[in-house]
Computed example of a mutant assay.
Amino acid sequence: MRAMIIGAAGMLGAKLSTQIAQGAVPGITDLVLVDRIAPAPVPGLPCQCLAADLGAAGAAAELAALAPDLVFHLAAVVSGQAEAEFDTGYAVNLDASRALFEALRALETRPRVVFASSLAVYGPPFPDVVPEDFVLRPASSYGTQKAMVELLLADYSRKGFLRGTSLRLPTVSVRPGAPNAAASGFLSGILREPLAGQAANCPVPDVTRVWIASPDVTVAGLAHAAALDWDRIAPHPVLNLRGISVTVGEMLDALEQQAGPDARALVSRNPDPAIARIVQSWPEAFVTDTAAALDFPVNPDFPAILREYIDQYA
């Protein structure tokens, strides 16, 4: 069975490639790794590593011609950029996704598709804990685009063209590497940079509560969705992945406990109203009973998330 990861050069894509090569999804015999810059191969399985822009004319058809049985669609313009660059966000996050689904539909093999959606599909007002059937009311272009792709994939699956599952990922923290343009990027930066002895800014109040998961647990959730028997996951075309609810202040408390007060003192407080508006428009906690019943993984608490990062990168 051939698996394709679109967005494989990103942090989640690279980790997912490694997990699959290590057997996280039974039955995979080879990998096609795709990104705008050719990803690095991973040991353990035969790999094709391709540089391709999913939004370019003909790119989706070229990828579909490789006949994948399973596609992880992780490619996206992130939240901050999608809000600032309206046309780019729609071209990449919506139009390119529709082109991909059409190209896969033309195969007539009903490939499995796992789409990385986001909690940004929700918007205020919402309760303290958002139920699984809560109405979609995105408050950003990024959230709107993700919601539209969820609906597309569900309809293509209903019609029997694909077998699709959309996973609403929690905010992923702590991300390694350089900062990105995501509105949530500071939720990694206020931990990653101080652990490296560097200054970081927190643009929101400490009482801001967020729904997060670690990189490893997030990737394990993506792989788990693909490994589940289709008959078991098919009734749930969209799932809220499991996460934990934590305040920014609690995250900084954990930083201080792990690295001391000097590390916490490296975090400055310069408010950014634009970032705060986006982040505070996201829910603080979710009901994830369906994901729990399907045995999706979850982090036990935030100190465990921070320890995961320190053990791997600090």
Rank of each mutant, 00 (worst) to 15 (best):
A213W: 00
E250W: 05
P205Y: 08
H224A: 13
H224D: 06
A226T: 04
V219A: 13
E193P: 03
L239P: 03
T247Q: 11
A226C: 13
S245K: 10
P237I: 08
T208P: 01
S214I: 04
G249K: 12
V204G: 01
A213G: 06
I233V: 15
N201A: 03
I233R: 13
G221E: 08
S245C: 11
P194G: 15
V248Q: 02
A227M: 06
P237H: 14
P194D: 13
P203E: 09
A234H: 00
A234N: 00
A227E: 04
P194W: 13
V248M: 03
V248T: 01
G243C: 05
H224C: 11
Q198C: 14
T247M: 14
N240V: 06
V204R: 02
G249M: 12
S214P: 03
V204L: 00
V217F: 00
E193C: 06
H236W: 09
H236C: 11
D206G: 14
D229M: 01
A223K: 02
Q198N: 15
G221K: 05
V248K: 02
D206W: 05
A225G: 09
I233Q: 09
L241W: 04
V210Y: 06
P194V: 12
T218K: 06
S245Y: 10
W230V: 11
T247E: 14
A199F: 08
P194M: 15
I233H: 15
V217C: 06
Q198H: 15
A225Y: 04
V207T: 15
A199L: 05
A234R: 00
A227C: 11
A200F: 14
N201I: 04
E193T: 08
T208N: 01
E250T: 03
E250F: 13
L239Q: 02
N201R: 08
R232G: 06
I212C: 12
V204I: 09
C202V: 09
L239A: 01
V207L: 04
E193A: 13
H236A: 09
P237A: 12
R209S: 13
A225D: 04
W211N: 05
A227L: 10
P235R: 08
R232Y: 01
A196H: 14
R209L: 12
S245I: 11
I244V: 02
G197L: 07
D231S: 12
P237R: 11
N240D: 08
R232P: 06
L195N: 10
G197T: 11
N240M: 09
L239G: 04
L241T: 02
I233N: 12
I212W: 04
W211A: 03
T208M: 00
A196R: 15
D206H: 05
G243Q: 03
V238D: 12
A226L: 05
T208H: 01
V204K: 02
D216H: 12
G197A: 14
P194T: 11
A220C: 02
T218L: 03
P203A: 10
D229I: 01
